[in-house]
Every structure is written in structure tokens, then in C-alpha cells.
Design a protein around this nucleic acid. Structure first.
Lengths: 245, 245
DNA sequence: CAAATAGTGTCTATAAGACATTATAGT
DNA sequence: ACTATAATGTCTTATAGACACTATTTG
């Protein structure tokens, strides 16, 4: 239960307090590589090290509200966009000693964002940057672990949900959607089979109405689609390595 | 980050403190129905109401350690068994006001247990009982929601992991394993196809060595199996309703 | 005997993997 | 012309659904 074992005469202020924070693993796809938003710490501990954006949960807000607030502050995205973003609770990290100063329990969230508004450093964040995974090195606290867990979760969720469209702009091509999968999974997918699968899944994507606009760099221009209304994939779109039977 | 925005001269005790608790949704299968372990609250608020077992995270333990400790206390299972149990972090519930007394953030865990040792009420838990889901009514706090989320999660995890064996005793029949799926999902599965799928998935189950012992109530005795070493199912074992394409 | 469950086998439907072919753009 | 990508189509393979059939127990 939520509040069992409350000793008689329990005084909330008498206990060693827990601080509750949120941390965010904000992913985007850039140049066919997965990037994550990191900020440079301006204070000890880990001063000068890179860390996931985040902050304290305020007394009157939920952890998710705190995560959206911090996301807006750190990225400079407008609040309306942040409200509609796909924000998923990853898990909570509570090991004693994960913060050297005091007991801090953090609720980690994962967010997927499409384009790349270069982050404007938040009020107190010294610097904010999109960093490619190869540079995931020596993050502050246990953020290395959180980031690895977040990456795993995103990869797994691509298999049985429609979150991949969260990486794409409002209108996108099947090729762009395929590159999301290829980038996150680190594999190459068959263009034809991927296309068949996506279009055969009702509600995954829907063609942009009106004359089928085409766009593209080199090669034949591709038709544009929008994210559909479905949230899960049935049957799932499994990673190639997944099938080993 | 975990501790950003620390005001100058921050004093941990000066803030309104957060309490951090764990709550457990402990499931078992009994009489072909899913049951969950509930305890009756002995104190206000919600005195006399049923609630999920749980308790405070102590200053020097992680949330998972707290969950295992509480699980051992509430169920009377021996510590060795509790250590090896499948314990999965469900999610964290942090809405302000979910506890009327103070700000309580709870980390919810899901556990699957095989047999049914009638719970001996813990030291402070007034009463503990296995309750069938039809009786999931009016739980204390937001435990109704936590329980619903836990049920959903278990059902989803049956599709692509091997956790179903967590509901079974050390040695079990394919029929017992199938009944786990049928009970959690609330559907009937084809016996033959289920058997084929389970045995074709490497590492899901392994036959008990030695002479193929058989057991069973009425009907032909069934061969015994143990849980295998695999943790995930590739390809997954999807719910019948899942396929609607 | 009937009823119930275990276990095997078979046919079919569906979905995915492999891969060929055509179309349309840029260089 | 050459290359890159889009889009379509086809063949094969793998897996799941449906279901018949036998085997072995209890009542």
C-alpha cells in the first residue's frame, strides 16, 4: 500500500528526505543516426560532464508534468508541441548512492521528437546538444545506464507499436519511416517488404489527401503519408535478428 | 539530470518532503482464475479497505530491495524464494493527492508466484488474502488503477516473454502452462497449436530428464517440463484477438 | 461405456523473406 | 549513361489457425 507502517506520531520532516526528480532521454534521428539530447552540467558533482536533461518534481505536479515542463525548458519547444509529444515513462532508478549528495529517486522518461530545432540552452543548463550514440560516454550519475535502457526500450517498442512516426515530421515518406527503423535497430531492411508491411497495417500511416504530392532528394519522389490513428502493430514488425527459430 | 536547479544553500530538510513507497501486484493462478494478493488496511485512511501490499523504501535500500522485503514480510515466503522470484517494475505513480496525507510517490512492481501458500498476515498487515479479479473493487488509494495496469502488463508480457512459467510450479505440464495463458487472457486456446508453439520455441520449456514421468487428474497423464533458459519468445505468442489484419 | 485430457498429424491461410522489374528523379 | 530511390509484383518459406484422429486415464 502507499502509506503503510506509518509509525505513531509520524512526522514527515523527521525522516531523511527523498528527493524525486525526472530525467529525460529525448531521441531524434539525424543523418541516419540516433541522437539524444544532452546538457552540460554547470555545477558539482559531475561539473562539466554531460547528463540527461531533467529536474526536480515540484510539490504540486506529477512526474509526467515535471517531465514535460523540463522538456519545454531544455529544448525550447513550444508548450503546445510538448503537450502532444509522445512521452513514455521508462522506469524509476532508486539505488542509494546514485547521487553522491543525498537520496534521489528519479523517474526516467523517453521522448521521441521529429525535427531538430537546435536546442537553446535552458535558463540554468550550461549547454545543450544533440549527441550521437557513439558519444554516449561517461555521462553524469547513472545516466549511462538510463540511456542504454531507453535505447533498448525504443528499439523494442518499434516492434509492436507505431511510435516510429514520432521521429518523423507531420508528413513523411515510407522511406523516411524505414530509416527510423534502420537507424534505431542498426540494420538494413528490405524496402519492398517494409513498405508492404507498413501499408498493410491499418492505421499505421495514411496517405496525405489531395493530389499525391511527391518529394525526395535523388531518386524517384515518394508519396507523403501522415501518422495514422493506430497505436499498436498487429502482428508486430519484428527485428530481423528476432527470428532465429 | 538528477539534481539540477539546486538552489544556492539548498537544504534537503527545508523542502516539503516526498515519501517513496513500493506497491506490489502479486499474481497467481488458482482454480483457473487470476488472483492477486491484497491486504486489509488497519489504519486510516481507507481503514478496512483492501489494498496492494507495500511499504516505505528505507533510506539505505533500493526500491526493488524494498519490494522484495515487503513481499517476504506480507506473504511469508522464504527469503531465498523471494530472491529468485520474477519481480518486474511496473511504473511509478506520482500524482499529487494520491495519498490524502502527504506527497507519496510509489514505485509499483509486479510479481508472479506459482503455488498458493495461504498468506500469513504480516506483522502489521491486518489480513492478507488472495482475491479473484471480480473482487477488484474499491481498493485503497489508486490501487485500482495500479492493479489494472499490472494486469495489462502481465497479459502483454505473456505474448513476447517466457514469464508464464513464473505462475507454474517447478515442474508442470503443457496443459498447466496453457491454462496460465487462458486465464490471464480470458480466452480459450487450441491445445494442439499451443503445444506445438511452446515446444517449437527453443528454451521456453525443457522436458524433465529421466523416465518421462506423467501426471494428471482425469484424462491422459501429461509429460512434465521445467522452465527453460530463454526469456523472450521469437516470434511472439500473440493473443487471438491481436490478429485482426 | 462416456468424458476428459494428452499428444500427433494434416491441410490451409497468412505473413514474411528474397528478389526481379519498372518508374522517375538527380548527377 | 549511371545511380539512387520509389513502387509493384512474384515466388518461396515459415508460422499460425482449424481440426481430425489416436492414446490413456477417471468415473
Amino acid at each position: 500500500m502507499s502509506t503503510p507502517h506509518v509509525p505513531e506520531g509520524y512526522d514527515p520532516h523527521a525522516y531523511e528526505p527523498f528527493a524525486v526528480t525526472v530525467d529525460l532521454a529525448v531521441f531524434t534521428v539525424r543523418d541516419n543516426r540516433l541522437h539524444v539530447l544532452l546538457i552540460e552540467r554547470g555545477e558539482e558533482p559531475y561539473k562539466g560532464a554531460w547528463a540527461l536533461p531533467g529536474g526536480f518534481v515540484q510539490p504540486r505536479e506529477s512526474a509526467e508534468q515535471a517531465a514535460r515542463r523540463e522538456l519545454a525548458e531544455e529544448t525550447g519547444l513550444d508548450p503546445v508541441t510538448v503537450e502532444s509529444l509522445h512521452l513514455e515513462q521508462l522506469r524509476t532508478y532508486s539505488e542509494p548512492g546514485r547521487d553522491p549528495r543525498m537520496r534521489v529517486v528519479t523517474v526516467a522518461y523517453t521522448a521521441l521528437v521529429p525535427d531538430l530545432p537546435e536546442p537553446r540552452g535552458g535558463s540554468d543548463a550550461a549547454r545543450a546538444r544533440w549527441v550521437a550514440p557513439v558519444a554516449y560516454e561517461r555521462l553524469a550519475f547513472d545516466h549511462q545506464r538510463i540511456l542504454a535502457d531507453a535505447h533498448d526500450r525504443v528499439g523494442a517498442k518499434l516492434e509492436y507499436t507505431c511510435i516510429a512516426t514520432g521521429f518523423c515530421p507531420p508528413e513523411f515518406t515510407v522511406g523516411e519511416l524505414r530509416q527510423v527503423y534502420e537507424t534505431v535497430w542498426g540494420v538494413e531492411l528490405d524496402r519492398a517488404n517494409f513498405r508492404r508491411k507498413v501499408l498493410a497495417t491499418p492505421g499505421f500511416v495514411q496517405p496525405v489527401e489531395g493530389p499525391p504530392r511527391l518529394t525526395g532528394g535523388r531518386g524517384k519522389p515518394a508519396a507523403l503519408y501522415r501518422a495514422g490513428t493506430a497505436t499498436t502493430l498487429h502482428p508486430p514488425l519484428l527485428r530481423p535478428e528476432g527470428r532465429h527459430s
